[in-house]
Amino acid sequence: MNLKLAKKLLAKVAFLILLAAILIFTVFPFYYAILTSFESGSDLFTVEYWFSSFDLANYKSVLGEASFVTSIWNSILVASSTVVIAMAFGLTAAYALGRVKFRGRGAVLMIVLSVSMFPQVAVLSGLFEVIRAMNLYNDPLALIFSYTIFTLPFTVWILTTFMRQLPKELEEAAIVDGASPLTTLFRVFIPLMWPAMATTGLLAFIAAWNEFLFALTFTLTNSERTVPVAIALITGGSQHELPWGNLMAASVIVTVPLVVLVLIFQRRIVSGLTAGAVKG
């Protein structure tokens, strides 16, 4: 009997260790970035595991730089416009794909899915030419335009999946009452689709906020950059003298809003990710 108890206790301890390991694995790097961002001067170069100083100098110097603040605004502008555009096109497309029966519907969905598999670098030179032709080079508008390449596919997929789950009777009732397809979409579906829209919108926002390759290639000057590029290009006096304190402060500033959003909406995000992938 005692042996069984000991075994049970051992299993419990092992489980707790496993949990602790997972927690450390996932949280520690971010924790360490926060810790570093509050250190300055020579404190930076001694390894610490706990908060020993609380110095806001790094934050002050990062936020004092006009170009970094501008790039935050650029990022907000680009990411939110991308969301609006992806929503507008995604909803109408999802309505057509989820509700209207037409030939080649499966083929259209397949095309949409395969676009989401595109390596971004494969369209880089072609897209660059398009952007040059539209005179949008070195302009955040170019990013809004090019981000639809990866936000549209999954918006369409997730919204179509949700749209299909809504009961058909609702739509039929609207048609019987003489509503046009657009009225049906705006008056019947959109109010019901709120949760799905919040999910996809958030995913699109995060994707646009984090994008790097296009943002790096299609912008040239500091005033037009988005935050990921701004962070990647922070340099010190030489290659081996990166201002790590500032870098970590900037990283924390960029990441904290996302982490907060994700933690608030975690259930929605999980369901969105699984709808987008598992049913794909």
Partner: peptide, 29 residues
């Protein structure tokens, strides 16, 4: 714990690369 596992996913790739770059620093990492 589930919320904690979402954190790495939310951190932008650039930021996580920089964060790890610092943690892996040859002298002060």
């Amino acid at each position: 714990i589930r919320a904690a596992t979402l954190i790495p996913w939310a951190v932008p790739t650039i930021v996580s690369a920089k964060m790890w770059g610092w943690m892996l620093h040859d002298q002060f990492g």
